[in-house]
Computed example of a mutant assay.
Amino acid sequence: MIENEKENLSAVQKIIVDAGYTGEKFASEIKTIINANVEVIKRNELHTFVVLPKRWIVERSFAWLEKYRRLWKNCERKLNTSLQMVVLSFISVLLKRF
């Protein structure tokens, strides 16, 4: 996926991933393809609730997008149209905050 969209990802400097992407091979491939660093955010091994730094940003963003019914089911014919629906949803979220 990243290989196919490397032109659109040229400004990305850091990719935040969960523990499923731990490994030097993944990080080196990302570095080779788009010259970005990979930061792995791991959960605490204890089974207690702890807010993980930076991971809550992604979870919060997904929660905001779940409020938009059009994004629940992908009924668009083109990938670019789906991308624009996500962008419009984020714009709507930002406008409601001000």
Rank of each mutant, 00 (worst) to 15 (best):
M1G: 13
I2Q: 08
E3D: 13
E3Q: 14
N4K: 15
N4D: 13
N4L: 14
N4W: 10
E5R: 13
E5M: 06
E5W: 10
K6L: 06
N8M: 07
L9K: 09
S10A: 14
V12T: 11
Q13L: 03
K14C: 08
I15S: 04
I16F: 15
I16M: 07
I16T: 02
V17P: 00
A19G: 09
Y21A: 02
Y21V: 00
G23D: 04
E24N: 14
K25L: 13
A27F: 03
E29R: 14
T32W: 09
N37R: 09
V38F: 03
V38Q: 03
E39L: 06
K42G: 00
R43E: 02
N44D: 08
N44M: 01
N44Y: 04
H47P: 02
T48G: 11
T48W: 05
T48C: 10
T48M: 05
F49D: 08
V50H: 09
V50K: 12
V51N: 02
V51C: 01
L52P: 02
P53Y: 01
I57R: 01
V58E: 01
R60P: 04
R60F: 02
R60E: 02
K67C: 15
Y68S: 11
R69F: 08
R69Y: 04
R69S: 12
L71G: 08
W72N: 11
N74I: 11
N74C: 12
C75W: 15
E76C: 09
N80Q: 14
M85K: 07
V86I: 15
V87T: 12
V87Q: 05
V87G: 02
V93W: 07
V93E: 10
L94D: 05
K96D: 14
F98H: 11
F98S: 12
